[in-house]
Nucleic acid binder design. Structure first.
Lengths: 128, 128
DNA sequence: GTTCATATACGAATATTTTCGTAATACAAT
DNA sequence: ATTGTATTACGAAAATATTCGTATATGAAC
């Protein structure tokens, strides 16, 4: 079980999203994906990626004169950690309360709700 | 619909939890509830509450020589905001993905899962 | 190899959050 | 009123996160 205990900052998390979605990409791509120069200066993103590299949040690989960055922590793990933390800091340890808030507000489609039900049944089956 | 648009910091959120759980309390109570002097200096908590007061995150009322603090934003609203944000920064806009992560990891009890199912059925009923 | 455009490296400034020491204040007891 | 203890006020330091200007380096084109 890979529990790498990372704690990305908010901006770092934004970047990780992009890396997860797009695989190894150059700074330029991240910069553009985040809304270009209107949103963040190029060197700001570059710097963030460099810091993330120092922290071990990303690996990078040279390709010609540029670097291609890749996320180290998995999306799965990271999501899990964030949720776990939120469950106990904001939802008093109850996953259910979180689920209910999540479903209550964002009006999910019927299909989604169904899929969740299926998922629940699967969980009930294979319970420890 | 009360959408007060607050953005408590992490520490502030921790304090809000306590205020929500315990109603109007003194600094001392918050301090103790957060683990006493081992965890945070008294004046640190005091200062945080003062800042929260300036920001309008809490109201306070004198009672003898001390202040009793009370949360302004509701727990409901705050949870909602946090979840919404997380859904779109971490779960690509899909509440379902969040729900699945939440249920998958934290092993919820059978009772909880059942209750969620009931809740889902209620949602399916009254859909827009 | 010189020039040009593009990328990275680096350091420092700015902003935000958290922590804490010290001073001032308030009430209670004497 | 004076003293003692608990509380608040305040300012500044420390820690963390974000932004950006400028210097350096790299490779491509000539």
């Amino acid at each position: 079980m890979n529990r790498s205990q990372v704690k990305p900052t908010e901006k770092e998390l934004e970047i990780l999203q992009i890396l997860w979605a797009r695989g190894p990409v150059a700074v330029k791509d991240v910069h553009e994906a985040m809304g270009g120069e209107d949103m963040n200066g190029y060197t700001t993103i570059l710097k963030l990626l460099q810091i993330m590299h120092e922290k071990g949040l990303v690996t990078r690989q040279k390709s010609g004169k540029l670097h291609l960055y890749k996320a180290v922590p998995s999306q799965e793990n990271t999501r899990q950690q964030i949720i776990d933390k939120m469950i106990d800091t904001v939802f008093q340890g109850s996953a259910m309360q979180l689920v209910m808030s999540a479903l209550g507000n964002k009006k999910s489609s019927k299909e989604e709700l169904l899929e969740i039900k299926k998922y629940l049944e699967k969980l009930e089956g294979g319970e420890q």
